[in-house]
Design a protein around this nucleic acid. Structure first.
Lengths: 141, 141
DNA sequence: TATGTCAGTTACCGTAAGGTAAGTACTATG
DNA sequence: CATAGTACTTACCTTACGGTAACTGACATA
């Protein structure tokens, strides 16, 4: 797509990233990178899988399939591979028959879970307000 | 073989929004509701629009189109309608010629921005770790 | 020999997300 | 009269997401 042009960051975001204020970023695609990161991470199956692993610790493939409601084998595999590639989970293969594969969150994965926690609690607090707004909107139109 | 069938099953799993399973579900799972909420909110254009409005306060349609990098008119309209319906923005039409329409965040919208701030910050802090993990994964396989 | 278990992989296919481009409505201005 | 400016719709079309189901491999058990 078109290259990211504007450097836009809110002052309220605590920047762990050191960069002179008011100047254009040394990393022109920082926003794009961050956006990509969020887009990847804010996936339905990723979030559900993250949650399941966060709650239960180490899980096997079929256990995950049972916990992540509605997921297909295909999507679960895909999601786990992606999360492994991104460094969110470790995949441990025990060379036994029948196969045994265990998945655990890494520190990075756990930190992601914590970060999403605030959105999660926000959603818990506000989903009623959203539904109310939707009803009001529907009646208005 | 019966793949990934858990206690709850959906006749057809649509993306994100789907409520009732078999029973008269006046109480879909809280988790499901929260998940739906996040799925809706964690949309690319929604996040970018939210950010633009959070930074600039009140904006007109074309201003938003300029700020939200890469968005098409179609998607911008769709996103704004959705956000309005969800109670995140107010849409003020000034009955003048040529048309003038202004968009502002509601309190709910602003609170969402704050909640997402932690994820945003997390992404800023960790996107390098993710890229590193990806490279390592690629080399590993 | 047939069947089951676990953790996948692969092929097939329908849906829907989303981009492009053109059209709409209205008026002021050159 | 033609054009520009604003805020959209609408039609069309392509891609990619994701569901279903069948198949793999190696052994254990009946």
């Amino acid at each position: 797509m078109a290259p990211t042009k504007s450097s836009k960051k809110k002052p309220k975001a605590a920047l762990a990233f050191q960069s002179p204020d008011g100047k254009s970023s040394q990393h022109p695609d920082l926003d794009a990178l961050v956006q990509q990161t969020i887009a990847r991470v804010a996936d339905k199956w990723t979030l559900l899988t993250l949650e399941a692993l966060d709650q239960h610790g180490t899980l096997r493939f079929t256990q995950l399939a049972g916990l992540v409601d509605g997921v297909s084998q295909k999507m679960l595999t895909q999601t786990l591979r992606q999360m492994e590639a991104d460094g969110f989970v470790t995949r441990t293969v025990h060379p036994v028959i029948p196969p045994k594969v265990e998945y655990t969150l890494t520190a990075l994965g756990r930190s992601l879970g914590e970060a999403f926690c605030s959105v999660w609690t926000w959603a818990e607090k506000n989903y009623k307000a959203i539904e109310k707004a939707r009803t009001a909107y529907r009646e208005r139109s």
